[in-house]
Amino acid sequence: MSINFDIVISSDDYSADMSAGLETMKGACEATTHIANTILQKKVSKKLTKESKVRNRLKRSFKGSFGMVFSLDTTDVDLKKKMNQIGQQAFSELISYFISEALYRESVKLSKKADSVLKELGDDIHDELIEQLQKSSLHNLHSYSNHFGKDVKLRYRKSRVTQTVLAHVDRKSYKSLVPKTDNTKITIEALIQVMEGY
């Protein structure tokens, strides 16, 4: 089973800066692959290598803004079986869920199937995956938005005419990945009272 996606970079002239565009596509690739690997293998990979059993494949570009179609595939028989059991719709819901969570956004309500897969992962793997996405994948996904102020969408392609936006990023969403420090000093007065018998 293959799950088709596309990445759409807003553009006024149907072109995009190559460096920032490639970095943005790399972020989409990393995010979908990290999430898929975690769902299928129930562990978070710290690094994606050429030996990874779950991979993305470039398909084609299309007109309108600037975009690229790609798919999430696996050649491993057992992982392919798991992928088929989960299904394209539930998989895409989970990708949207994890990206939303990593960007501190409210996520869409998951179907029963997607929610069941999420619960199987457990809290530790869930939190580890969110942290992994925040380290680099989502920074890369925001590259074009940060450099050129244009929106980027990651979409699930059910067909050529039916797409669902899984993630929409811009400069504003990037700010959630970069903590802002405040040097304002705050004075706190506290009273500690000891009670008898404790």
Rank of each mutant, 00 (worst) to 15 (best):
T187H: 05
D12R: 14
S15A: 12
K63E: 13
V117C: 01
D78P: 00
V117K: 01
L121R: 02
V194S: 11
D17M: 10
A20C: 06
S107P: 01
P179W: 02
I9W: 06
N4I: 06
D124G: 03
S100V: 04
D78V: 13
I188A: 10
E131N: 14
R171E: 14
V54K: 08
I192R: 09
A114P: 02
D76E: 15
E106G: 07
K53R: 10
L103F: 05
S19R: 08
H168D: 15
Q89M: 12
G87N: 01
V165H: 04
V194C: 08
S10W: 04
D127Y: 07
N37Y: 07
D151G: 13
M68S: 12
I9F: 11
H34G: 03
H139N: 12
V44I: 10
I7V: 15
S137F: 00
E51G: 06
E131R: 14
E128A: 11
I125R: 01
T74G: 04
I86N: 00
V8I: 15
K46Q: 10
K63F: 05
T49E: 09
L191T: 13
S71C: 07
K59R: 13
S2H: 07
K53D: 04
N56H: 05
L72Q: 10
I186L: 07
D182H: 03
N140K: 15
Q132I: 03
K81H: 08
L141Y: 01
F66T: 05
S52I: 04
G21H: 04
H139G: 02
K112T: 14
T184P: 00
Q163W: 06
S61V: 04
V54N: 11
R171Q: 15
S92C: 05
T24K: 04
Q88T: 08
S11Y: 00
P179Y: 07
D6Q: 08
S71E: 05
M83S: 12
V169L: 06
I192M: 08
